[in-house]
């Protein structure tokens, strides 16, 4: 399986993401600059965290106008896995690939620590290696992770099981403690916590690795004969 890690000016978790895939997952991966107009050769798209374009205007607002976003939308429509982490999640929200928006954390502080998440839905291509209800430890590092959407959207997210990860306790004020959601089709996941920073016990937790393994498993099941 071949992954693309999209790099914007101001991305700063791109190299972590690259190494998580290359060294811990053992799959092929390229760093791809934001002006790429074609991602056809990639089986999975990873949008890393950071502060693309300095978070000017709003987090992710400028990045979502980039050339590469058209190629990302095309990959999403084709059913390929698209994962946005932290600023990557904010970019997916701005682009409309995922519903809702991010507000400043309730306590107005940048929060940087490892938190406990609950796996709410393990029937996705991103979470099939977890059990429903699993408690996993994954780091967060954000100032704007306070997820917001209108009541109608929230009801829809719940009804379609699009809420994949929640914080085990209130961290930043997010509605329904939402930490990660998918699109309706289930192939685009946005999450504020950083699974790429939790892929080895040496990093304090290896609980994020199963997320990447789930993606590969899903791809193998549909692309490799006798998988």
């Amino acid at each position: 399986m071949k992954f693309a890690v999209i790099v914007f000016p101001g991305s700063n978790c791109d190299v972590d993401m690259y190494h998580a895939v290359k060294d811990e997952l053992g799959e092929q991966v390229d760093l791809v600059w934001h002006d790429a107009d074609n991602l056809d050769q990639y089986d999975g798209i990873l949008i890393p965290g950071g502060f693309s374009y300095g978070d000017y205007l709003r987090s992710g607002a400028i990045a979502h106008m980039s050339v590469v976003m058209n190629a990302i939308k095309k990959a999403a429509e084709a059913g390929k896995p698209v994962l946005g982490v932290c600023n990557g999640f904010q970019i997916l929200l701005e682009s409309g690939l995922l519903p809702g928006a991010m507000l400043r954390n309730k306590n107005l502080k940048f929060i940087c620590r490892t938190v406990e998440l609950s796996v709410e839905n393990n029937k996705t291509m991103f979470t099939s290696s977890y059990e429903k209800g699993d408690k996993i430890r994954v780091p967060i590092a954000h100032g704007e992770g306070n997820y917001y959407c209108d009541d109608e959207t929230l009801a829809k997210l719940k009804e379609n099981n699009q809420i994949v990860f929640t914080y085990a306790s209130d961290v930043n004020g997010s509605l329904s403690d939402i930490a990660g959601i998918t699109n309706e089709k289930g192939n685009v996941l946005g999450m504020m916590p950083h699974p790429e920073r939790a892929v080895d016990d040496l990093l304090g937790s290896a609980d994020g690795l199963k997320l990447f393994q789930s993606i590969v498993k899903h791809w193998r099941d549909s692309h490799v004969v006798n998988a």
Partner: peptide
């Protein structure tokens, strides 16, 4: 399109 986010 850009200057505001109609969601919020």
């Amino acid at each position: 399109k850009l200057l505001s986010n109609p969601v919020i």
